[in-house]
Write a protein that binds this DNA or RNA. Structure first.
Length: 300
DNA sequence: AAGACCTGTGGGCCCCGTTT
DNA sequence: AAACGGGGCCCACAGGTCTT
């Protein structure tokens, strides 16, 4: 059988060639840059062929290195696929995540397919509940919770700005139903969620009409998702979190009749993970994916 | 322009598994 | 048990790039 080169060195070369960086490759492989550099040098000496041009602060592939890289990549992809097929059958890891019904329905579930496609070895078991999470007593790996960021015994990763905006069906803004300014809401039905009983009050105060409009009148639903659905049906005005209705605003199912919004600042959604136990690799993957979905806002 | 920073290299050393 | 060798880390260094 033909000789195989040292596979660790091959792995180092493949990563370095893919990133065109020794440092990034070393980071990916969890070794130092010196180790990667040395492995590639060893590989080159073994093969008797120069694979990389070493420039300052950068590397590039030689012609032979490029050819070798393409061939090696094909083989490594084959190994990756075979490994994935094997681990999918025998070693799927399960991640238990708790979220709120509305967050799950309107944001997480539509995006989970992209997570599963990228991470077929990780199965997300999603539950919805309003209850606070106790990682010491419950078998839960992560939870999406509302709060001000100050929890004890957990790592809290801030996810998204919590911006309140009133929404309704476009049909409610017909000419006979004169709703032009926030004070006009006093003649309208406000839709509430049990989970977020004060959102209307926050917004009405910010709009300066909390004396004219009863912040607690109207109809109450068990979840915000139900209130949004009722709003889409033309039953009244719901107070929404902007990122949860962005798609409906885009498609025109819902409209935002007023320009006034309220940013709740630190009181927003966080991904909580237990601080008392080491984070699993699958949870780290899920956490990174979640945070990637909410890129930090550009400074204004 | 100067200093800070970044990135790659290579020597010295250590750890650990294998061989003698 | 000692010698050997592979692999990795630490550290100093070189030199280009970025920032002030």
């Amino acid at each position: 059988m033909d000789p195989l080169p040292p596979l660790n060195a091959l792995r180092a070369f493949e990563a370095a060639a893919r990133h065109l960086s020794i440092t990034v490759a070393a980071d990916e492989l969890h070794v130092t840059a010196g180790a990667v550099s040395r492995q590639i040098r060893t590989l080159e000496e073994g093969l008797g062929v120069q694979l990389l041009h070493r420039g300052h602060r950068q590397i590039s592939l030689t012609r032979a290195g490029g050819d070798y890289y393409r061939a090696v990549t094909r083989s490594m992809d084959g190994i990756r696929e075979a490994t994935l097929r094997l681990t999918k059958r025998t070693k799927r890891t399960q991640l238990k995540v708790r979220a709120y019904t509305t967050f799950a329905m309107r944001w997480l579930i539509p995006r989970l397919s992209s997570f599963h496609a990228a991470n077929p070895g990780i199965e997300v078991l999603l539950t919805a509940s309003l209850d606070p999470v106790d990682f010491r007593k419950e078998d839960i790996d992560g939870a999406i919770r509302l709060g001000d960021g100050n929890w004890s015994d957990v790592h809290a990763h801030r996810l998204v700005p919590n911006v309140l905006v009133p929404v309704c069906s476009p049909s409610l803004l017909s000419t006979r139903n004169k709703v032009k300014k926030p004070a006009d809401l006093r003649h309208q039905t406000l839709l509430h969620s049990i989970a977020r009983p004060d959102d209307w009050r926050y917004w009405l105060e910010a709009a300066g009409v909390d004396r004219q409009v009863d912040a607690h009148g109207g109809m109450t639903y068990q979840s915000s998702a139900m209130a949004y659905a009722a709003a889409a049906e033309g039953q009244g005005f719901a107070i929404a979190q902007h990122f949860l209705v962005a798609a409906d605003l885009q498609s025109g199912v819902l409209v935002a009749p007023f320009r006034k919004t309220v940013d709740m600042g630190d009181f927003t959604y966080y991904l909580l993970t237990p601080a008392h136990r080491k984070e699993s690799a699958s949870m780290a993957t899920f956490r990174k994916w979640m945070l990637e979905q909410f890129p930090p806002l550009e400074p204004a």
